[in-house]
């Protein structure tokens, strides 16, 4: 970049480091931090939607829907999330291919599972084997997003279900006394008020989500863990930039990245809590009123 990097053997000291840190692979490594942030930015709202759906289903008066909601919210507590990750990535992929297979090749007579193989017709493959590379990567990434959203949606459902119960009962009764229907009371009174009660749980969940992002590596996405292992490994003379086993330093870098992300989130969430507590009929809100009056 800034120096003449064409002949790394001749470089030394800082110049060598500057050239080393701006190689193509390193730029891809820096880009993968973006992948992680992108995953967080996409997954958080989707899991919130899944969570809201789950919580509403768990409160439903229609038994099968309620059973579904209850199962969805409770199952993540008993089973490690990594099991879901490994399961859903294959299961979703196979489910999509099977659906496409049913639609696109109705006259296919062979079984789908042949021994240890999962066979669908060529037109049903996802993505098509002729598709460009970015489509393959994008498909892998969206499978990962969907998996994260399903698992963390269940956690969010847990939190929101608790929050809906935490809204003081008289609030709903007042709404009903004004002649609101159940639906109106839910949307106009319960939902706006529940966020304060959900916030501690949701901020915890956000931290949990941050800490789950390295698992992208297990789902086959080229994320920061993949690049840290790749770049940190021992490089012999055959490589342009030979160096010893530096994986420890790369992982230290990742550690610092995650600690910074956590710290920033903590600060932002603390501000958000203060803002939401304002004027609420809770102990925190009362304390703020008192502080303002003084």
């Amino acid at each position: 970049m800034f120096f003449n990097c064409s002949d790394p053997q001749m470089l030394a000291g800082l110049e060598w480091l500057a050239c080393y840190l701006t190689t193509g692979k390193h730029l891809a490594f820096y880009g993968s931090f973006g992948t992680v942030l992108l995953l967080l930015a996409i997954t958080a709202p989707i899991s919130l939607i899944f969570g809201f759906g789950g919580a509403v289903a768990a409160r439903s008066h229609f038994p099968p829907l309620r059973w579904f909601g209850k199962t969805y919210t409770s199952v993540v507590r008993g089973i490690p999330d990594i099991v879901f990750f490994l399961f859903f990535v294959i299961a979703l992929d196979q489910a999509f291919e099977w659906l496409r297979h049913k639609v696109k090749c109705p006259d296919w007579d062979q079984p789908i599972r042949q021994g240890n193989d999962f066979v669908v017709c060529a037109q049903a493959k996802l993505p098509l084997s002729s598709a460009p590379q970015w489509l393959h990567e994008g498909y892998g990434f969206s499978l990962a997003v969907l998996t994260f959203a399903i698992v963390y949606g269940a956690f969010a459902a847990n939190v929101l279900y608790g929050a809906m119960h935490a809204v003081p009962r008289p609030q709903i009764e007042t709404a009903e006394a004004y002649g609101m229907t159940r639906r109106q009371a839910f949307w106009r009174v319960l939902v706006p008020q529940m966020w304060l009660f959900a916030l501690p749980g949701l901020s915890n969940l956000w931290m949990l989500l941050i800490k789950a992002t390295p698992l992208l590596f297990l789902l086959g996405v080229e994320d920061i863990v993949y690049w840290a292992r790749e770049l940190g490994g021992m490089k012999t003379r055959a490589f342009t930039f030979p160096h010893a086993d530096w994986r420890l330093w790369y992982f230290l870098g990742l550690l610092v990245f995650y600690l910074a992300l956590t710290k920033i989130s903590e600060i932002v969430l603390a501000r958000l809590t203060t803002r939401l507590t304002h004027g609420q009929a809770t102990l925190g809100g009362a304390a703020m009123q008192k502080a303002a009056a003084r």
């Binding site: 992002t213 994986r247 550690l255 956590t262």
Partner: peptide, 18 residues
Amino acid sequence: FIFRGSPLFIQFFLFYET
């Protein structure tokens, strides 16, 4: 802060490399 603020997955890698 360090152990709660970072992913367990990264901690495993870091300690193993050490």
